[in-house]
């Protein structure tokens, strides 16, 4: 286990270069090490072709890369194809088997955490906790917009996890639940794509006015009808949809969940030259994580 909070990279951030075969998996790892980010989060289904049947030789090669570049595996991002078959959903047992497969993979990589995809039912996670403990991998359900701490589904998970304590189960926190200002880069992009400056300004001001407080996250689904009523074009409506999809929740709410936060997706929309995220108040979230004893990775 890491002794204190540390920064890392999710190779999701390199996906386009990998997709176009401009970088290999090893190139991505080397690039992270080159910028001083030694914690490596991976998506097996993205950059480890053959998963879940990876050969022994792959894991040997992986260990070799970790040694050569001085990097450490942090999290494995798992998926659950509940609708793997066209005509039926996976049974409970099949879902448990799928998660156990991911636990095996994460343990083989040497990861401390699995980012559990949010659709995984709490009962499935519950039945996987003993195996996760045996393989010493934490199951961390991702809290990602539009879900937040007080969302009913997250609360159902939390109620289950509290029966077991935070050692092997908990959450991955996506920083996208703390969007306090409409991302400037998205607003500018919408205008470039044909939205009107005036309508985008209205959407941005509406979002910014609603976000930032304590209490329940604001619901901005009304914006679409309003933009439509004002004669907005298709790109204006996209702006309204962005605003409705983004989420502000009060970082103070994080305090109650702290021992259960095992991993953070430290995403950013626009990191300024001053190393300040334009939309997400990192300076108010990170202290809560540190005060709460967070010892995982902030994975960007």
């Amino acid at each position: 286990m890491t002794v204190k909070a540390a920064r890392g990279v999710t190779l999701y951030s390199f996906q386009q270069a990998y997709y176009l075969r401009e970088m290999s998996l090893e190139d991505c790892i080397a690039a992270c090490a080159g910028m001083g980010a030694y914690g490596i989060e991976t998506l097996a289904e993205q950059m480890m072709p053959g998963f879940p049947d990876l050969p022994e030789s792959f894991y040997g090669q992986w260990q070799g890369w970790m040694e050569r570049y001085g990097t450490r595996p942090t999290a494995h991002d798992m998926f659950l194809d509940i609708r793997r078959w066209k005509d039926r959903s996976l049974t409970h047992e099949e879902m448990v088997a799928s998660v156990r497969r991911d636990i095996d993979h994460a343990a083989r990589l040497g990861c401390e955490v699995i980012r559990v995809i949010v659709i995984t039912p709490p009962e499935v996670i519950e039945d996987c906790i003993p195996y996760a403990a045996e393989r010493r991998v934490k199951l961390a359900l991702e809290i990602h917009a539009p879900r937040h701490f007080d969302d009913e589904w997250i609360q159902r998970h939390y109620a289950t996890y509290r029966k077991y304590g935070p050692e092997w189960v908990g959450f991955t926190l996506d920083m996208g639940i703390f969007v306090e200002r409409f991302p400037r880069v998205i607003a500018e992009r919408l205008v470039r794509d044909g939205a009107s400056e005036q309508m985008v300004r209205f959407v941005v001001e509406s979002y910014d006015a609603a976000a930032g407080g304590s209490g329940a996250p604001p619901d901005l689904r009304w914006l679409r009808a309003e933009v439509e009523g004002r004669g907005g074009n298709a790109q204006d409506l996209r702006a309204a949809d962005f605003a409705a999809r983004m989420l502000w929740s009060d970082p103070a709410r994080l305090r109650d969940f702290m021992p259960y936060i095992h991993h953070v997706h430290a995403k950013f929309y626009e990191m300024t030259d001053e190393c300040v995220e334009y939309s997400i108040p990192y300076e108010r979230v990170v202290p809560i994580l540190l005060e709460g004893g967070f010892r995982g990775y902030l994975s960007s």
């Binding site: 996906q15 998506l43 289904e45 993205q46 998926f79 609708r83 793997r84 078959w85 066209k86």
Partner: peptide, 15 residues
């Protein structure tokens, strides 16, 4: 062609 999604998928997921 290439897949347009951000991970690979089982062939049965191709509709």
């Amino acid at each position: 062609i290439r897949i347009t999604y951000y991970r690979g998928v089982a062939l049965s997921l191709i509709e």
